[in-house]
């Protein structure tokens, strides 16, 4: 069973603000899912190579030809805040460590 402390730790890593009720429910639900998943840890997998990706293609190279990027205005159009022709963000402030 995941502790509330572990849930809070993972939520902080994931940059998710959870309410108390969400965190409590998350502990129960994740524990139940992890209990099911735990079955695979009993399998004999010694010497098995991990699969990160099914594609066996090696990274292909394309011709190094410059092409225009999307216009700056088009990309900034969807931004919540634009500052000096770039994406605006709040000050890191007190959270900077």
């Amino acid at each position: 069973m995941l502790s509330r402390h572990e849930v809070d730790h993972v939520a902080a890593l994931a940059r998710l603000a959870l309410t108390d009720a969400e965190a409590e429910r998350m502990a129960v639900e994740l524990s139940s899912i992890l209990e099911h998943i735990d079955r695979i840890r009993a399998l004999d997998l010694d010497g098995v190579a991990p699969t990160a990706h099914v594609s066996d293609a090696t990274a292909p190279l394309r011709p190094d030809v410059p092409v225009p990027s999307l216009p700056r205005e088009a990309l900034l159009a969807a931004a919540p805040e634009v500052a000096d022709g770039g994406f605006g963000v709040p000050s890191p402030g007190a959270s900077a460590q």
Partner: peptide, 11 residues
Amino acid sequence: DLLSMYTRTRG
């Protein structure tokens, strides 16, 4: 601040 903006937006 920035971190609070991230966590609230995502939460």
